[in-house]
Amino acid sequence: MKAERDSLPATVGKMATEGYDYLVKITAVDYVDHIDVLYVVRDIAASKDQILEVALAPQDLWVPTIMSIHPSADWYERELSEMFGIRIDGRSAPRLFLEKWDGVDPPLRKSFKWDVPYRTKETESK
């Protein structure tokens, strides 16, 4: 199910009132020309899953936070911003937690280079 970025908190909130009040996962897939951010929400009573897809352009990577609706989004959003370089709007720069990754290429993006030395933002600016 497609969703718009700007109305995402409203969509997720509306679905939560309709029964989809359990967040299973937030993840992303890098399709090079665009990045899909996926929100898997679940209606536990009916055991039905719903996947919300938010398509982002590679130049404009941010999504609004949904932590006010699902507190469990906390770590997923942190992982998203660390692994995909997606800015989470509405949260003050979430603390990195998996790798403390401060490299230029976010590791799970397809543009990530395996065979080059570790580049940080500091070494890049020199």
Partner: peptide
Amino acid sequence: CMMYLVADPQKPYRLSIRSPSMVNLA
């Protein structure tokens, strides 16, 4: 554990693992 797999002919294009330990620890 939820596996979200985007398949390509040769290799997995993207595999996203929902780790139960992670949410429980959080």
